[in-house]
């Protein structure tokens, strides 16, 4: 639940989602669900030369299981809040 809640708070911000097949997509976080499936809007592929077939993709749904990383906006990370949440999660989970 920790990261679901975290990503919900991040809706509207710019993130870069890196997939397990090395494709990296930057876009505005539109929504997220409990599986950490992600919907991005105003997307652009980071390495457009390598993936020209993605040029016209403007928004997308990403299945959570294919995500390797999400690069987060620096001001979208409240470190103290995260620590507390993680400790609570460790106790409850």
């Amino acid at each position: 639940m920790l990261f679901f809640s975290y990503f919900k708070d991040l809706v509207g911000q710019e993130v870069t989602v890196e997939l397990k097949n090395d494709l990296a997509i930057r876009g505005t976080l539109h929504s997220v669900d409990q599986y950490l499936n992600i919907k991005l809007e105003n997307t652009r592929v980071v390495d457009q030369d390598k993936y020209p077939h993605m040029l016209s993709v403007r928004n997308c749904f990403i299945r959570g299981s294919v995500v390797r990383y999400v690069q987060l906006p620096p001001d979208g990370v409240d470190v103290d809040l995260l620590h507390d949440a993680a400790r609570r999660e460790a106790r409850g989970g």
Binding site: L2, L72, H83, A86, E89, G93
Partner: peptide
């Protein structure tokens, strides 16, 4: 390490 859960999802800085 800033956050983690039981799946080992993590936020690193």
């Amino acid at each position: 390490l800033h956050a983690f859960d039981q799946h080992l999802n993590m936020i690193l800085g």
